[in-house]
Structure formats: structure tokens, C-alpha cells
Amino acid sequence: MTFLSYLISGISLGSVYALIALGYTMVYGIAKMLNFAHGDVIMIGGFVVFTAVSSMNTSAPIAIVCGIIACVVLGVAIEKIAYKPLRNATPLAVLITAIGVSYFLQNLALIIFGSAAKNFPDILKLEDLQLAEGLTVTGEAVVTILITIVIMIVLTLFINYTKIGTAMQAVSEDRGAAQLMGVNVNTTISITFAIGSALAAVASVLLCASYPLLSPYTGAMPGIKAFTAAVFGGIGSIPGAMIGGILLGVIENLSKAYISTELSDAIVFGVLIIVLIVKPTGILGKKMNEKV
């Protein structure tokens, strides 16, 4: 029974990683870049929700909506200001810019909110749930898993059954050919950043609900873990990010429970290395088509 409870909290942690990993993987698929500032967008989302609840006394749903809007605006603005001028630059220049944006956001938060970690208010106010004799899980874990399942279903339907979703797949596969179909690549990239950032905002609320400490560096570690999850699942693949995120959370939690808390991160990254040795494109990664 304790194993099951560790497993469920692992799936919950992994769900948060999966939501963040979706942002990495979608942006990579469509804009062909690694947005290393993505983790810090989560942190900013957390601070927006925190400020709305504790300083302006707004209700939780309104605060969450504010967080989502702020993240979407921020994500799209980052793309327009920092990445768009580099659309034809070398990947290395874009990568370094993304790292720069990441530090910019962390230091911006440092100036505004200070370095001391804030106690994130208990905005979801959920009771623990007793699923069976001796099997109790936190309400946050259950809500996190349920919200993530709903988001994944909606996102999968959106990608596969809407015109914009199909266009996103087309741009991801062949940007030039998609342009020849009349797809505006800049708009598609903006939509991708908007979706990724909205998911980041949701992730920030779920993350802070389970781990209620908020500092300018809150986004860094989940960001790196989620990036790892995206690579683990196969970067560019949406189902890959979902599976990779959840697996990573489960591995991390079970390592903490049964092996060692200190070594859990090492184990997580060790598993990543093994996966990449066996299958360099990740679990669901597709082999790149060779152009003739």
C-alpha cells in the first residue's frame, strides 16, 4: 500500500513535469529551438498567482486565470522580442539567448520579490483522500493527475483535429512546405509559445500547491527535469513528453522512497543517460528523415 501511495505521488509529480515538458517539446518541434527560459516562466506564473492571492485578495480561480494570462503574454513577448530576430541565426546563438532570457527573468523576480522564499498560500484547499485501508493520498496529487489528464486529452484533440493543430504538425515537419501551403509560420510559433506558457502557468499552480515554497529559482529545477523528460520521451513528440514526464516523476519518487533522497536526481539523470544510449531519439522520438 505504501508503494501505491509513492507511485501515485510520483505520477502527480510526473504530471507537473509532463505539463512543463509539453512546452519544451512543442516549441522544439515547431520553432526548432530549446527555450531554456521556459522553467522561469513557471516561476513568474507562480509569483503572479501568489501576488494576486496574498496582496490583492482575489479568489483562487481569478488568480489562476491571471497567472495563465500573464504567462501567455510573457511567453509570446519573449518569443517576439528575443527569439524572432534570431529566426535565421545559428542554433547556438538562439540557445545562448534563451539562457540569457532565463537569467533575466530570475533576476527580475529577484529585484521585485526578493531572494527569500515565500510561502505559497494553500489556494486549492483540498482534503487528503483515503482511497483504501492504509492508502491515503493528498488531494493535490489527485487534482494534479486529473487536470493533467484533461489537458492532455484536450491538447491531443486540438493537435489532431483542428486546422491550426494540423498546421502546427506541418510546420514542425517541414517549415518551408508549410509556408507554401499558406501557413504563417510566425503566427504558428506565437500560438505554440502561448499554449506552452499557458500549460506552464497551470503547472506552476499545481507545483506550488504540492511544494508551497516560491523563490526566483523555483522554476529552474522543475524546468531542467521537464526538459529531461521531454528528451527522455523524444523531443518534439507530444505523447513522448507526456510519457517522459510521468515516468520521470515516478522514477524520482520511487528512488527517494526506496533508495536515497540525496541520490534521486542522480538516478533520474542516470536513467536518462541509459535511455539515450539505447535509443538516442528518446522513447517515442522519430528518426529524422534524411533529405535526399
Binding site: T166, Q169, A178, G182, V183, N289
Partner: peptide
């Protein structure tokens, strides 16, 4: 385009709907 550049991972039908994107 040269080399066809169809969307390999999409279905034939979706490739055609992409042609009518505008």
C-alpha cells in the same frame, strides 16, 4: 516543390486539407 516535400507524418487526407489551408 522539388523532392515533393509532402508531410510524411500526416495522413494523405490531412496533406490534402493542408493544401486548402488558406
Amino acid at each position: 516543390p522539388e523532392g515533393r516535400r509532402i508531410f510524411q507524418q500526416l495522413s494523405v487526407y490531412k496533406n490534402l486539407t493542408m493544401g486548402a489551408f488558406i
